[in-house]
Design a binder for these strands. Structure first.
Length: 103
RNA sequence: CGAGUCGGUCAUACGGUCGCGGGCUGCGAGAGCAGCGUGAGGAAAGUCCGAGCAUCGCAGGGCACGGAUGCCUGCUAACGGCAGGAGGAGGCGACUUCAAGGAAAGUGAACAGAAAUAUACCGCGGCAGUUUUGCCGUAAGGGUGGAAUGGCGAGGCAAGAGCUCACCGUCGCUUUGGUAACAAGGCGAGCCAGUUAAACCCCAUCCGAUGCAAGAUUGGGAUAAGGGCUGCGUUCAAUCGCGGGGCUGCCCGUCCGUCCUUAUCCGUUAAUAUCGCUUUAGCUUGCCGGUGACGGCAAGCAUAGAUAGAUGACCGUACACGACAGAACUCGGCUUACAGACCGGUCUCGGAUC
RNA sequence: GCGGGUGUAGUUCAAUGGUAGAACACUAGCCUUCCAAGCUGGUUGCGUGGGUCCGAUUCCCAUCACCCGCU
């Protein structure tokens, strides 16, 4: 299933002001209804240096790509993982499905 | 064979499915779709130096109670880098390592110690007095200290002292070798003054400021607040003088008639578009010159360019089971991190054999 | 990404290369019937690793951590 990147700074600011939040495991999501499915990944510097941050981003994008068929309605989502020592694709997918159920 | 030393190379590989950035080609009005090919490093890191490039300023010049560098010769676009050499230190050795200009321009240097660049505390010796002692000579010994009149031996002396002598060290002059740093030798001076300049300082050389979030192109308006300016005298006159402001910290010099800054609101993607943005001190190979850094010539190659920021997921095979780590304008260095694997040297030491 | 700055006691800050200090905090004693306040005393330190120096918190180099500015 295709999705778009959420890129503009102003859009993200609006999303954080108006959107609802959902949590599952080590992952939190901010979402708001929109005509197209949009996604952004937010990884702060607390996660480590560039290699670690890129690793987290790639895993989260892959997990979202694998599971975004289960999303109940079209919306804009920002995904914020919590800082941890190690990450895995399967746990991200589990947490994403948990978030979709709560939405 | 073992131990070592120096230098270099690589940094999981291959196949399949899905996914991402850029490019080219084709289709399409367009959004986009299809195909082909391509897509992180030796340090991409730290941002410690040096440049390109851009803007500001430009007639530019000078001065720094600004900064950097500091043995010599070369290399380089340049450098605080590199190469070769000199000297000190370490190692049996190959080799490693070193912030290594100047103290006869001046200033400063805790505590301890008698005394730190000027001196006699104890001691040793002479003279006087003899109960303590006083005067003089003395740096051999003690003690203090990081540092105390160059070291050691012999002579000498009242006791001592480069006071005298040999050797070593130091300083001055000179010869030879070397482009030079410097080295070796000769002659002379008994050595009247230490150490510290990663303390101030002096000398020599170099340096305008800011950084691609630089900057360029295209692209609207309204309102409010604050600041600056022509402010004063004079003149027909911005003409002249004073004052004010900009130009690098200051000075000389030079320029200056209507602008600048901030906040809020509406509106197109507008701090988000397009350019800068990747072809250059470029890479590879061969030959030549040079001890070397490096230079020259010839042939071949084109090799990321994102902009919330692209390399991932899964499966299979192999083994050593994969370290440090992710381009953000670009180069040349330096420094720091790093699982391991491999290669080389008219390299070194030890043992064995011939 | 580019530029700049700071590391000192549990906390906030000082200190010219020569024994590292102040305030609050903590703690022991005195005072009080007890607590608070007050008085007297004490404990706790130079981010890390090298170098220069007789001697480094201070000077030099490297490294680590944190903070700020620029869209």
């Amino acid at each position: 299933m295709k999705y778009l990147r959420l890129k503009k700074n102003t859009d993200i600011q609006k999303l954080f002001k108006k959107g609802k939040r959902a949590f599952c495991g080590g992952l939190s999501a901010v979402y708001a209804p929109s005509p197209e499915l949009k996604m952004a990944v937010i990884v702060s510097k607390k996660h480590g240096k560039a290699v670690k941050r890129n690793r987290v981003k790639r895993l989260l994008r892959q997990a979202f790509f694998n599971t975004c068929g289960n999303i109940p309605f079209a919306c804009a989502v920002a995904l914020v993982p919590k800082a941890a020592e190690s990450y895995s694709l399967k746990s991200f997918e589990k947490w994403l499905c948990g978030i979709y159920k709560k939405m």
